[in-house]
Design a protein around this nucleic acid. Structure first.
Length: 200
DNA sequence: TGCAAACCATAAC
DNA sequence: GTTATGGTTTGCA
């Protein structure tokens, strides 16, 4: 399926292990956690079951770029995440949801239901895509929450989700609509979610 | 609040 | 084919 060997990289920065699987200048998977074992496990579980891969200890130049971005995203910095993601192997609906999610700007958040209204399907199906997001945190699934303004879930744990969102606060004060995939996606300042959390 | 039922794409059998 | 499984939502007591 993949002509070339898949390269798997991991790198630790301030106690956080970032991981990525790449092939032919495309990202097949990315992830992060507090342990190298967990990060690698997550990466490997995303790869096709019959894929040939090799784990490298020294990052390639491309991997270095990716890690720089992963770190920046993790710390809530505004960076260009315009990487080539290997979407084509994924089901069509999954691709649509991931693309829509990728368009949520830094400092904003949206609902599972809002995404489903924009791309079709139902909120629950959107949640399924988030749960198996192969490109965390490049595809910012942490910016998607439940319509009652509670957090919903997160692969890396809810604590991590809150931390990420906290670092993404930019003081925006109004909602807006994005054009995605022929539909409209409503997004609102991430502060709406965070302030609601402290109340409860 | 809390619980049940509807919802919808995937993955697993 | 069919069933099971969710990072959900809504309605109703």
């Amino acid at each position: 399926m993949w002509q070339r060997l898949i390269e798997v990289y991991s790198q630790c920065s301030e106690g956080v292990w970032f991981g990525a699987a790449v092939s032919q200048e495309q990202i097949l998977a990315s992830s992060f956690s507090t342990s190298q074992a967990t990060t690698l496990k997550q990466i490997l579980s995303i790869l096709p079951y019959d894929a040939a891969f090799q784990v490298f200890h020294e990052p390639s130049d491309f991997a270095k770029e990716i890690f720089a971005s992963l770190k920046a995203i993790y710390y809530g910095k505004d960076v260009d995440t315009n990487f080539r993601l290997a979407l084509t192997l994924l089901p069509a609906y999954t691709q649509k949801v991931l693309k829509a999610t990728q368009q949520i700007p830094l400092g904003y958040a949206t609902f599972y239901s809002s995404i489903s209204e924009a791309v079709g399907g139902g909120p629950r199906a959107v949640g399924n895509v988030m749960a198996s997001n192969p490109f965390a945190p490049i595809v910012p699934c942490h910016r998607v929450v439940r319509s009652d303004l509670t957090l919903g879930g997160y692969g890396g744990g809810l604590k991590t989700k809150i931390e990420l969102l906290n670092r993404e606060k930019r003081g925006f004060s109004s909602s807006k609509e994005l054009r995605v995939n022929g539909g409209a996606l409503k997004v609102f300042p991430v502060e709406y979610v965070l302030s609601n959390l402290t109340l409860t």
